[in-house]
């Protein structure tokens, strides 16, 4: 398939959505469905004005910090669970329990437990991303083929060599997928987390747009996050293509 055709295919659903929105904007009140032209200029305005764009940077920083922390802790917990049944039986139910707690409840707990905006947000981002990382990394560890493990083991490697030469390359595809999924989730949670009294960030900016009833602004700020997620996913996709070129590609689709 040609590059142009593929690009057109990827853009088609968005063009349709944009078209429907634009039709709505022509027939309905502007404060409900503002013209996309206005939204575009607002998006650009945020990009170009540091006093506004630094809110996006702050939010992105919170997403990355929360996910990074959750990934490190999650990976350690998953390694422990993979190694010991006792750890598995102890941590597993806690993570399942965490998964059932709504993000908004964590917001309330964070406000009660912590002082200061950033610790609260970090805590919320951490606990909401942690269970997914734990289960994803654990699943990946359990899926490392036993026969490959025994093959490497038969050479009597040190624990570090086993990890670097077998475990890590074997779980890497699942870890990148986990990051992609959790990135999307975290970008949705972060704006809720920013309701703990942040005086900056996309969540804060959205709240302001709500107070002045500015739909174009609300949409423009939302798009900032969407654009970030798209860029980050594209970056992970690039890493995947580079790292997994060893994979066989079938000429048929699954």
């Amino acid at each position: 398939m040609s590059v142009a055709l593929r690009a057109a295919q990827a853009a088609a659903p968005f063009l349709l959505l944009a078209g429907l929105w634009q039709i709505a904007s022509l027939n309905l009140p502007k404060f409900l469905f503002p013209s996309l032209v206005d939204v575009f200029w607002r998006v650009l305005g945020i990009f170009l004005d540091w006093s506004e764009f630094r809110n996006v940077v702050a939010t992105v920083g919170r997403i990355v910090a929360g996910l990074g922390g959750a990934f490190v802790i999650g990976a350690v917990l998953a390694l422990a669970m993979n190694r010991s049944r006792a750890a598995d039986r102890f941590i597993g139910p806690i993570m399942t329990f965490f998964q059932g707690v709504p993000a908004l409840s964590w917001v309330v707990f964070a406000i009660i437990w912590f002082h200061g905006t950033e610790p609260r947000i970090f805590f919320i981002m951490l606990v909401t991303s942690l269970p997914a990382f734990v289960f994803q990394v654990l699943g990946a560890l359990r899926a490392v083929p036993r026969d490959l493990f025994e093959m490497v083991l038969s050479f009597r490697p040190s624990g570090a060599k086993m990890f670097l030469q077998l475990t890590l390359p074997a779980i890497l595809p699942d870890i990148l997928t986990a990051w992609k999924v959790n990135l999307g989730n975290a970008s949705r949670v972060v704006v809720v987390a920013e309701l703990v009294g942040a005086t900056g960030g996309v969540g804060y900016a959205l709240l302001q747009q709500q107070q002045i009833f500015d739909m174009a602004g609300a949409l423009a700020w939302t798009l900032q996050l969407v654009i970030f997620v798209l860029i980050a996913q594209g970056f992970i996709g690039m890493v995947e293509t580079r790292a997994f070129k060893y994979r066989a590609v079938s000429e048929h689709a699954l």
């Binding site: 026969d147 490959l148 025994e150 093959m151 060893y246 994979r247």
Partner: peptide, 8 residues
């Protein structure tokens, strides 16, 4: 079975 590491 050969047990080759697919990424090498």
């Amino acid at each position: 079975n050969d047990r080759l590491l697919p990424w090498r």
